[in-house]
Design a protein around this nucleic acid. Structure first.
Lengths: 137, 137, 137, 137
DNA sequence: GTGGTCTAGACCACC
DNA sequence: GTGGTCTAGACCACG
């Protein structure tokens, strides 16, 4: 469960945990049915308050990504949820706009962006070359 | 100025304003030296408190995008700031990772993502076909 | 925190707070990593509006002197920022010119100025012999 | 009347004018009895509003540095005023503290500060090697 | 408890 | 007219 926390970050800690878990899910580094560390365990590992990890787990559970089995632990759901179509489109478009704006501001064109995406894909799929940057999502 | 506010959004109002202004800058819809509406004016137009717009302007000023001249108004900086190379890379890579993760989760592959980017580019450059979604960035 | 506010001063209150904090930093009275009082607490102590203290903290944060952690508080950055060399020189030279001009106007020569500096140094390092004058910087 | 205006500066324009005139007075570049350009003239030269120059002149007049003779123009007073002792001390001490804090923050000690003062003195007395930096005071 | 955001009002300084 | 500062309140999110 390689998770990296940046305490002072703009993104709240529990959100950092959530987005890193969903990234791992999207990419297949976490498999359906797989068991996660207990929130206390993970909290100790990350040196943060247990409640904070629990909040991340709870949110992910209410979104349908995780499920907890009393006394056994927390697991990745076997059937991952599909977001509502409207939300999907909107979120992806927003992310696309943001990426484009950033690129434009540095003078990178669409071709360059695609190049960057290729590298990011490679990184996401085959391990974490730059662990530090993983907390940024 | 064509800014669209979504009151209940997760992103705070002043952030929505900031990101829409920086998007406009990146894309050239706002030109260096151009005068922005006064924060009071824009606040009235958006039906929000003047201080909220002012906060957005202030942040953009401290980031080097805008500059204010007492008694005259707020303007786009003539020389836009260059981010430090490290920050640039990290920000763009984070945005790329986020876009990819979202796409993966919906079963869209890199080709599909590029398609989405093309549409987003078109939207950013020429008018606002889906004005509502522009506030999400 | 020993901060002294002069309500009617030409320098705005939040600026008075900022300059007294940066002075404390320069001189070592505030150490890297140290926790500052919450903006509400300090506001109550100084008998001013909480937002006013917050503005001072916010500015110092965007300048890289302080960092805040949601729910935990505001802290002195562990690594204080280095100004760009050009800015450094210019700021120091401007301060030197101002000091000299003031001295000249009163008929104090360089020797006298050095004498004044010695006293100021002593004051900054060890207690606040003239607390009232400390708000002027 | 070499005056340099920095439009976006934190210091209001009329204050920039005032401080550059008083600096010139302190250093002797402007002599008692000397005639200043009319506020309209100077305004045109500096490309700013005449009212702004007038305000600077008015303030300096009410402080006793300048005097206007109806129909003849504005002149440096023959007997320059002495500030009140309390104000003097306070202003000079504040300037000293500010200079010291800046120096400390860059790792310059009292010896280095004296060195800087020597250079500044030389510059002030013998013409303006760096005209740009003169607007900072 | 902490900081983060927003409101509605006020008064001032500047140009 | 512009921006700059300050107040007194409110509600939310975070740890």
């Amino acid at each position: 469960m390689q998770i990296l926390i940046r305490p002072g970050d703009e993104l709240p800690i529990y959100r950092q945990i959530m987005s890193q878990i969903t990234e791992a899910l999207a990419v297949g580094r976490l498999q359906p049915g797989e068991k996660l560390p207990s929130h206390r365990e993970l909290a100790e590992e990350l040196v943060i308050a247990p409640l904070t990890v629990k909040k991340a787990y709870d949110e992910l559970e209410s979104l349908g990504f995780l499920e907890t089995q009393r006394g056994r632990g927390t697991f990745v759901c076997s059937r991952l949820p599909k977001l509502k179509m409207a939300d999907q489109r909107e979120q992806i478009e927003a992310a696309a706009r943001k990426l484009l704006s950033l690129a434009y501001m540095v003078g990178v064109d669409l071709g360059g962006v695609v190049e960057i995406l290729r590298k990011a894909e490679d990184e996401l799929l085959h391990g974490s070359h730059s662990a530090a940057s993983r907390a940024a999502g």
